[in-house]
Design a protein around this nucleic acid. Structure first.
Length: 431
RNA sequence: GUGGGUAUAGUUCAGUGGCAGAACGCCAGACUGUGGCUCUGGAUGUCGUGGGUUCGACCCCCACUACCCACCCCA
């Protein structure tokens, strides 16, 4: 123990019983995706660095400051190495795969989901890790398949609301905005910059910096004194062209019709360059400064900027770490424990215990094996501490008589059963 | 990258310039084939790392590192 090696900064081990919550959540998500006809896609954790520079955006913080990237050794001295990166998000990889495998040749819209680790080199804090997990989904395809339809946006949002409700998460808020298409956005940015020029000197120091580096972030400012000023700044919604305006109105109309509550937040800004039109965030209190549990939006031009054909799409990513954090306060997921603890009693009994365990497990019983060197007291103690529901005693008496002592550790009741009856008596009624 | 806080047993945390502590947990015995309760005993550890002050440092000083919280940014 002189120099114990520890998990590296911003990473952590997920241990039982917490992993049960993760499994519960991922299982619920997979069930839901199946009902909405999304299928799983798994893309590599390592990608070409350029993929993120061209999608997320070279000037974004994620790409310029927070990526784990390195130059891969060249095969020959004369060749240049290739720059690789750990993915900071998964949408770019999915769209890359869409292009690489010509998935537009497949019928209809592509509907994918993924579950996996993402990597950003940020300073860790509550709900923020360098290796974190996202569950996301993407709908992408040619316009002719309906990929641009506001119905797709609404369906995705309705699915998310259903997921959070299904998980029993109370008190979430859906914040909605439209950031327009690329054209709208540059017009809006010009207007915003112009408006800021006159007032920025009266705002907080952060805003003065943001006005230069990333004007949209001014809208995020939480300093009370700045709020009246921000309220008077131009709004993105006033700079939408007719089709974007109609698109956004239709999304809202469907959401209202299906009963998914939302609030319009004209200040909602996404941090990745590829977002267009519909942008959204689900937030929840009790998460400290990291109150966004999931975010997403439409990315109609992404495929083209990666060298692919036009392929409008929309997607989201759930911060699994953050969601688990809030869920753990709301519900306790019981860790799976053994049905039966087999307590071999005395020399030579491990053999019989092993045979019995094999029989029972084949019948679907969860079995934990003890050891013949344990005193019976220790076996029972161990069994009840680890949460087993039954203890099965396997000793000389049982082997000669064929009648096994089966003890219910909850009630303390002990019965004598035949070998063939054990599985039936110990399995949980269902699942 | 910036600011604040923290670092002592497996865990949660006390503590004093002079022998390293509690609770819970863990192991064992009382009880040889019957757990949960009780009692008794035991092991917990480089007091984050490296320097310095001091007769003597877990304690005071400096540096470093890690974690937590916030900023930034985002999921």
């Amino acid at each position: 123990m002189a120099n114990p090696i520890k998990s590296v900064r911003g990473t952590r081990d997920l241990l039982p019983p917490e992993t049960a919550t993760w499994n519960f959540f991922e299982g619920a998500a997979r069930d839901l995706f199946r009902v909405y006809n999304f299928q799983e896609i798994r893309t590599p954790v390592i990608e070409d660095l350029q993929l993120f520079q061209r999608s997320v955006g070279e000037e974004t913080d994620i790409v310029s400051k927070e990526m784990f990237a390195w130059e891969d050794r060249a095969r020959a001295q004369s060749e240049k190495g290739q720059w690789l990166a750990l993915r900071p998000e998964n949408t770019a990889g999915v769209v890359r795969a869409y292009i690489e495998h010509k998935l537009w040749e497949r019928p209809g819209l592509q509907r994918f989901y993924y579950i996996g680790p993402q990597f950003r080199r940020e300073r860790p804090q509550k709900g923020r890790y360098r290796q974190f997990y996202q569950i996301g989904a993407e709908v992408i395809g040619p316009s002719s398949a309906g990929s641009e339809s506001p119905a797709v946006d609404a369906e995705l949002l309705e699915m998310l609301a259903a997921l959070l409700d299904k998980l029993g998460l109370k008190g979430w808020t859906l914040e909605l905005n439209s950031v327009g298409c690329a054209n709208d956005r540059s017009k809006y940015l010009d207007a915003l910059r112009a408006a800021l020029k006159d007032v920025v000197h009266t705002m907080c120091a952060d805003c003065q910096r943001r006005a230069v580096t990333n004007p949209l972030r001014v809208l995020d400012c939480k300093v009370p004194a700045d709020q009246p000023i921000i309220d008077k700044l131009p709004r993105q919604s006033d700079y939408l062209d007719e089709s974007c305006r109609a698109h956004f109105a239709e999304v809202q109309k469907i959401l209202t019709a299906v009963g998914v509550p939302f609030v319009l937040n004209h200040r909602l800004v996404r941090g990745l360059d590829y977002y267009t039109r519909t942008a959204f965030e689900f937030t929840h209190g009790a998460l400290g400064a990291q109150n966004a549990i999931l975010g997403g939006g439409r990315y109609d031009g992404l495929s083209e900027s990666l060298g692919g054909p036009p392929a409008p799409g929309i997607g989201f990513a759930i911060g699994e770490d953050r969601l688990v954090m809030t869920l753990q306060e709301n519900l306790g997921v019981a860790a799976h424990t053994a049905d039966v603890y087999i307590a071999p009693l005395g020399a030579g009994m491990n053999v019989h215990a092993a045979q019995l365990a094999r029989e029972l497990r084949r019948q679907g019983v969860t079995v934990t094996l003890g050891d013949e060197t344990f005193k019976l007291k220790k076996s029972l103690e161990t069994a009840s501490k680890m949460g087993a529901r039954f203890a099965l005693i396997v000793g000389e008496n049982e082997i000669t008589s064929g009648q096994f002592a089966l003890k219910n550790l909850g009630t303390g009741e002990q019965v004598s059963v035949l070998r063939d009856e054990i599985a039936e008596k110990t399995k949980l009624p269902q699942r």
